[in-house]
Simulated scan of single mutants.
Amino acid sequence: MQMSQIQLQSSSMKIGLNIDQPVQEIQQKAADQSIEQPRAILEIQTTPGKLTIDQTKAREDMDLKSLSKRVEEFAQQGYQDWLAGMARRSQQGTELRHIENGGNAIAVQAKRNSKGPEKQFNLGWIPSHFSVQLDYQPAQVEIEATPQKPIIDVQVNKPNHTYIPGNVEVEVLQENSLDIDFINLFPDEIGE
């Protein structure tokens, strides 16, 4: 027996897309920038160094003494010579008082008084070592620096933005369809 059949045959719709991509451009110009750095304020105070050279002792060693020093030495030497002379005269007087004891006191005294002191000579450095006195006070420097802040100026530039939107076009490439077929829908003989 043959059965009636329905046959369905379908096809899907096919579509096509034409796409124009969007275009976007962004340009950013660098910022305009200026920086200025003022110089620091610098204050320097200097106390100069002091060098003192005292060559008084060196000059005295070379017998180049000042007038006041010579007067002082001569006065001291005169006083010492006066004391020595008094002691010598006192001793000579005592010797003359005892002339009766014998001896030739006058001749001995005359010989002693006519004889001068022996001259002495010594080798040495003129002037003597370390006779020049040096005194040095070093300089003092005070430095005060006041820094200055930089002056910064910035101008920001806006970006240049260009945008072209995209486009999509849709087209139907194939229509959808449905075909229906009936097989053996009206058989010729029923019941065969």
Rank of each mutant, 00 (worst) to 15 (best):
N122T: 12
R97K: 14
A105G: 12
R70H: 05
L8R: 02
L42T: 04
K50A: 15
A84H: 14
R88D: 15
W82Q: 07
K69P: 10
S66G: 00
F130E: 14
S12A: 11
K115H: 06
E73C: 03
L96H: 06
K119H: 07
K119I: 03
G103E: 00
S12G: 11
L64R: 08
L8Q: 06
I41F: 05
R97Y: 14
T46Q: 15
K50G: 13
Q77R: 03
V108G: 09
Q109M: 02
K119R: 03
D20N: 09
D63M: 01
I26P: 00
N113R: 00
S4P: 14
Q24R: 12
Q80L: 00
D32K: 02
I99K: 02
R89C: 11
E73L: 04
I26Q: 01
Q120C: 09
R112G: 07
H98F: 10
I19G: 13
P48K: 15
T56N: 13
S66T: 00
N101F: 03
G85E: 06
N104W: 09
I99C: 06
R89A: 15
E95H: 07
Q55V: 15
E95T: 02
P117S: 11
K14R: 11
Q24S: 14
I53S: 11
N113P: 00
V71S: 03
K69N: 13
A58W: 09
Q76D: 04
P48R: 08
S114Y: 06
I99V: 03
L83W: 08
I35W: 02
E43K: 01
R70T: 07
L17D: 03
A58L: 07
Q21L: 15
E73R: 01
R89V: 15
E36H: 09
R112Q: 08
T47W: 12
A30S: 11
N101Q: 07
A30N: 10
I126E: 08
W125S: 11
S90P: 08
L8G: 03
I44L: 02
L64V: 10
V71I: 12
